[in-house]
Design a protein around this nucleic acid. Sequence first.
DNA 1: ATTGACATATACTCATGAGTAACTCAATGA
DNA 2: TCATTGAGTTACTCATGAGTATATGTCAAT
Lengths: 202, 202
Amino acid sequence: MTSPFRSAQGRSEDRAIKRQALLTAAVRLFNERGFHATSLDEVATSVGVTKPLVYHYLGNKDQVLLECVSFGLAQLREVAEAARAVPGRGIDRLKAFLRRYAEVVMGDFGRCVIRTSDEMLTADSRARFRAAKREMDAAMREMLEAAVADGSVRIADVRLTAFTIAGALNWSARWHNDDAGQSRAETARDMVDILCAGLEPR
Amino acid sequence: MTSPFRSAQGRSEDRAIKRQALLTAAVRLFNERGFHATSLDEVATSVGVTKPLVYHYLGNKDQVLLECVSFGLAQLREVAEAARAVPGRGIDRLKAFLRRYAEVVMGDFGRCVIRTSDEMLTADSRARFRAAKREMDAAMREMLEAAVADGSVRIADVRLTAFTIAGALNWSARWHNDDAGQSRAETARDMVDILCAGLEPR
DNA sequence: ATTGACATATACTCATGAGTAACTCAATGA
DNA sequence: TCATTGAGTTACTCATGAGTATATGTCAAT
């Protein structure tokens, strides 16, 4: 039982929870209807509050979107981080990375990263968005190169292979449906197997 | 030299040319700035005319977009048609199809197909758009199944493989740049090799 | 009790962009 | 030569949605 008199900390936790609820509502609507077709009014209403509150917690529409994609990109960064610690050969780390990458991309914030294209953001936010995406791309290439280096895969063109694999996984953000067919984890596993079948040396 | 007195046919050719010019201008801007961020005013101005003329030739904004994606999907349909006539094993037809598919997807109208998501269209147009996309998906699966049938590839899950390959190729619509790096044809060829390496039986 | 900080709402402003009415002008055809 | 048609324009209407000014209530600390 918590006391009804919330401490300063309690209040700021409260605020963080509300913030997150608003952010999640926003990202869901963005994914469902598209960013431009979603008004902040709708975001607010979907949580039972009014628009100015969205500005209070999250700022203007551009900032809301930036926050959503930043969150998604942070999840992807964590996935890369975690994959580096996986034991085994390069390809094992790579596969672990790709699987978890795909799982994130099928989630709310990951989907938003994929569906958001640069022109939706202001010049400022756009620069940060692109930088974070480049970082992910670099992480993917590094992992490919490490696997090449330890001989667990054979790759002619790392850059193109990275784009190809990323594209295949990213696209699941468009078609995967949680309520039908395989789960995210199953889908991710199978896609990764399909993609990596051609990488292992014969 | 054509006569300055254009015949009825000449005039309707003229009209078709102008129509196409407007459509191309529209698709380029949609790709560059995004559909919602592009006004029909800008489309008109980019060709040196005024907005009502766009309505005169192409109809409302939804119809313009539908026309763009229909054109892109028609190109893809042609590609599928042509690939069926390619001689050789199933995998040869498949590879020919995928290469040309990728090339289309890196072009103006193909890119627009990829970048357009359902919610941008009215319910009516959306239905037609989805139907055409399903048709393409079916074509891709058919080609995979044919290659499985004649033993030139081994595939565990045709549906998922189709999504995976399509995703990898579709994504090039997002990153490929005509003015830098490899040409469309080179890029397409190399992506297809990467993707098919894992399909051929060992 | 009083003050101040924060949460939340009402009720606006303002810009933008879709879509249209209505006009002009030129060529075509009877 | 006059009527018709189609190309193209100007100058609007109208809805929507981003963003804000300002009011109100509520809690916590003094």
